[in-house]
Design a protein around this nucleic acid. Structure first.
Lengths: 178, 178
DNA sequence: GAGATTAAGGAACGATCGTTCTTGACTGAG
DNA sequence: CTCAGTCAAGAACGATCGTTCCTTAATCTC
């Protein structure tokens, strides 16, 4: 149920998903929705948390176990389960986080975890260069996960699609050497 | 007028900006809006085109003239003019392009131009590696511009902010060497 | 100066939004 | 059997959405 809601919210913007859409695509009916989740926002938060736990968290696990940075992040773009993947997190970051503090908190915490999972060093020449300088992973890891978000955007926007894998592979190779 | 509309649409989602918001924040009044642009979507498209021409195009110019890939893209994150910058393009790519073919066309064409402006080689080991293999810039350039989009997302989502510059700098250094 | 044209400023429209209330059938305990 | 409680199903609510229409004031032409 919550998973179906997550898939709907991952497909289009928050305002683009109406209560009628939710009621018809899900089995659940109006009364139960408000009884259980309180409001549309409540259901959205539940769906977001579900997606972060069941889609993104396993992905973070696989990334942290991957051989190189490129390999792990390439499969981040095409999740095996066929679920919402990163899309709900992406939409939440772009359109909900700026107007919803609770969403912003969830998003930043998840992205920070994804940064840490890459295991990529800082990459700046600043003092205290390696790994974790002072709280939080390195600048290069932030850039890498940001690239994944951007590639997912371009795939959604209708790019040819196949070159997303090539782009991630090329980037991973550059970051892996040395 | 169109610029003010672009700033509004860059700030929140398309459905989050109402006609009342537009007529109050802009000087223009309802009748003229529909006389001139036909519909809300018409005004949105005009604003998007304006932003692409006045915000993104100069940015692409500066990127193509920058010394290294990192230097040019870092200022892409904090445009000097203080305008909408990449935000309208970003929102258009995430939430409008999947449901509006005309927006998708504008977005993909602009992003392709940004790729080409980086002057970054392909980076894959594929045959025909250097520069433009067959139509369109290299995979590494796609990854680089995608990273810029992702960093802008994280800045909007409430990240500490300062590390976006560090991330872009670190990535630029990695891509410049060799 | 008189008449035609245009734009401003709202009122008003139907549709749809998120939310709540009412109704009717079903279930378990006494 | 009876009755309190639960839940599906949908009607209905006020608010707001995008869009159109109407009235009035200003501008331009002859």
């Amino acid at each position: 149920m919550v998973r179906s809601a997550a898939e709907l919210f991952a497909g289009r913007a928050y305002d683009g998903v109406s209560i009628d859409d939710l009621v018809t695509h899900l089995g659940l009916h109006r009364n139960s929705l408000y009884k259980t989740f309180g409001s549309k926002r409540g259901l959205y938060l539940a769906a977001l948390r579900w997606s972060l736990e069941h889609d993104v968290a396993p992905l973070i696990d696989r990334v942290s176990r991957a051989a190189g940075p490129g390999e792990g992040l390439r499969e981040a773009l095409s999740p095996p389960g066929g679920g919402a993947g990163l899309d709900l997190l992406l939409l939440a970051a772009v359109e909900r986080a700026p107007v919803d503090a609770e969403v912003a908190e969830l998003v930043t915490r998840t992205l920070d975890a994804l940064d840490a999972a890459t295991g990529v060093p800082d990459g700046t020449g600043d003092p205290g260069d390696p790994g974790d300088p002072d709280g939080g992973p390195g600048a290069l890891a932030v850039a890498l996960t940001s690239a994944v978000l951007g590639l997912r955007i371009r795939a959604r926007a209708g790019a040819p699609g196949a070159d997303a894998g090539r782009a991630c592979e090329a980037l991973g190779r550059r970051l892996a050497t040395r």
